[in-house]
């Protein structure tokens, strides 16, 4: 496991081997220092996140009512989980969301960051305005988008009508509703990912580009041979966190799609399903099992990415 995560030059220093070696005083001091530095975070996470999660695992083997009263049911919740058509459907929708929004979002935010990292005119105005969506409240924003996409009174359909184009019931057609949700999700995340990537690009030493310029590399060659490889730790971060948040998409769906929406089935995500079972229906045991499944899937996908990173992510060695 440690191999997957290590990016430091001492990665060969596997713990077991090191334990057999003599530990220097310096190293010992470093260990104490490291534990001291991670202690506040780890203690806080244990109390507020990890302990509740352990409780949640216990809930998943129980029938839990709205008031946290439990009756042990063994694997019943999991048995139900694998027979539930809604779970399958929700995973399908969520997967579609992740598979489309992650690459599209990454490519758009890298392009934006790269453009804004050049000497183009007015880049500070662009930077500021592109960044605006990144600081807004998702609940407020979902409301505005819902209103703009409204079939009857929305500004989009009105504009289409003026242009003589056909209008559409964007949010209630199961063929388009999920794409509208993706658009809103992308709108909110691209600005922020752009900032992270821009920060990463600024960390790349100009000397690399100067060397490349001497070698006569064009802008595209520079981008693919210098920017992307040296930016890879940041890109890796953006991919990992986009995939995780993609699997957890909920707010926008919840705000934009009601239960009588004909596209309801085709827009419900796994977290929507979890939320409905836990908070609307009060089936907290079953909801816990759903959340464990979500966790397991994200964990698996993330582990695969951590294994894969060795092939393309360059840490400074």
């Amino acid at each position: 496991m440690h191999l997957l995560l290590s990016g430091s030059p001492v990665r060969e220093g596997c713990i077991m081997k090191k334990a057999k070696r003599k530990v220097s005083a310096r190293q010992k001091r470093d260990w104490g220092f490291a534990y001291l530095y991670i202690a506040p975070l780890v203690i806080g996470l244990l109390i507020f996140y990890i302990w509740p999660f352990i409780q949640n695992i216990w809930f998943s083997f129980n029938d839990v009512n709205k008031f946290n009263m439990t009756t042990f049911v063994g694997l019943e919740n999991y048995r139900k989980l694998f027979q539930d058509q809604d779970v399958l459907k929700a995973f399908g929708n969520t997967l579609k969301y992740v598979v489309i929004t992650v690459p599209v979002g990454l490519i758009l935010s890298i392009i934006l960051a790269a453009l804004l990292n050049t000497k183009i005119r007015g880049k500070s105005i662009y930077r500021t305005l592109y960044f605006l969506p990144a600081i807004t409240m998702s609940a407020a924003v979902a409301m505005v988008w819902k209103w703009m996409f409204n079939e009857q009174m929305g500004v989009l359909n009105s504009a289409l009508k003026v242009l003589g184009l056909p209008t559409h019931n964007w949010l209630t057609d199961s063929g388009t509703a999920l794409y509208v949700i993706m658009l809103v999700g992308l709108w909110m995340s691209i600005g922020y990912n752009m900032v992270i990537l821009l920060a990463g690009m600024q960390g790349i030493s100009p000397s690399y580009y100067e060397a490349a310029a001497i070698d006569g590399g064009g802008a595209f060659a520079q981008f693919f041979h210098i920017t992307v490889p040296l930016l890879s730790p940041t890109i890796f971060f953006v991919v990992i966190t986009s995939v995780i948040s993609g699997f957890q998409v909920f707010d926008v769906v919840y705000m934009m799609i009601g239960t009588t929406n004909p596209a309801f089935d085709d827009t419900q995500t796994v977290v929507s399903l979890f939320y409905r079972e836990a908070f609307s229906y009060g089936h907290k045991g079953y909801a816990a099992a759903i959340s464990i499944l979500i966790f397991a899937v994200i964990m698996l996908v993330t582990l695969i990415q951590f294994i894969g990173q060795k092939k393309w992510v360059n840490y400074d060695d």
Partner: peptide
């Protein structure tokens, strides 16, 4: 339609 009414 039901679509329109579910939205507006």
């Amino acid at each position: 339609s039901a679509q329109t009414l579910s939205e507006t």
